[in-house]
Simulated assay, not measured.
Amino acid sequence: MSQNHNEISVSATELETLGDEIIILDVRKPAARSGSGLAIPGARWRHPFDAANWAGEFKGMRVAAYCVHGHEVSQAVRGYLADTGIEAVLLEGGFEAWKQSGLPVEPVADTDA
């Protein structure tokens, strides 16, 4: 992603290497997020069906959205963000791919979900 800003997805290992270069958005549905009890460290949770109300806070930033498996939810959010001019990608395989890669996770804060 760092060289081709037209990509729409990034692997878990690629996302981890981006560090502070990108904001990670957890856009899992509330039940899926709380059911998992875990998140990518530093990820900001936003309700996936309310993007019209929160997208503006990420104008001018690079973001990566993830849902459980990287399918409909994160794809829709990524598309919406991109349509509003935000440089957005999705995490290939979603949170499950992140966990399967052995990358760090943290407990979901009670106030986030």
Rank of each mutant, 00 (worst) to 15 (best):
S2F: 10
N4S: 03
H5L: 12
N6D: 06
E7N: 02
I8T: 05
I8K: 04
V10H: 00
V10A: 02
V10R: 00
V10W: 00
S11V: 01
A12V: 07
T13V: 09
T13M: 04
T13I: 07
E14F: 09
E14H: 09
E14C: 07
E14R: 07
E16C: 11
T17I: 10
L18R: 15
L18G: 12
E21A: 14
E21F: 10
E21R: 12
I22K: 04
I23Q: 06
I23F: 10
L25K: 05
L25I: 09
L25G: 04
L25A: 06
V27W: 04
V27H: 02
R28M: 08
R28D: 03
K29C: 04
P30M: 07
P30Y: 09
P30C: 05
A32P: 01
A32R: 00
A32L: 01
R33I: 06
S34T: 12
G37N: 13
G37Y: 15
G37F: 15
G37W: 15
L38V: 10
A39R: 15
I40P: 12
I40E: 10
P41C: 13
G42W: 15
G42T: 14
A43Q: 04
R44D: 08
W45F: 14
W45R: 07
R46Y: 13
H47P: 14
P48V: 07
P48T: 04
F49R: 15
D50K: 15
A52Q: 14
A52W: 13
W54F: 11
W54Q: 05
A55H: 13
G56S: 06
E57C: 02
E57P: 05
F58H: 03
K59C: 07
M61I: 03
M61F: 11
R62T: 13
R62Y: 14
A65S: 05
A65I: 01
V68M: 07
H69Y: 13
G70S: 03
H71E: 03
V73N: 03
S74I: 01
S74E: 03
Q75P: 01
Q75D: 04
Q75S: 08
A76V: 00
A76K: 03
A76S: 09
R78F: 03
G79K: 05
G79I: 03
Y80A: 08
L81D: 05
L81W: 10
T84E: 10
T84L: 11
T84G: 08
T84D: 09
T84V: 14
I86V: 11
L91D: 00
G93F: 11
G93V: 06
F95M: 02
K99C: 00
S101P: 02
S101R: 02
G102F: 11
G102E: 03
P104H: 08
P104C: 09
P104A: 12
V105E: 06
E106F: 05
P107D: 13
V108A: 08
A109H: 11
D110W: 15
T111G: 15
T111M: 14
D112H: 11
A113Q: 10
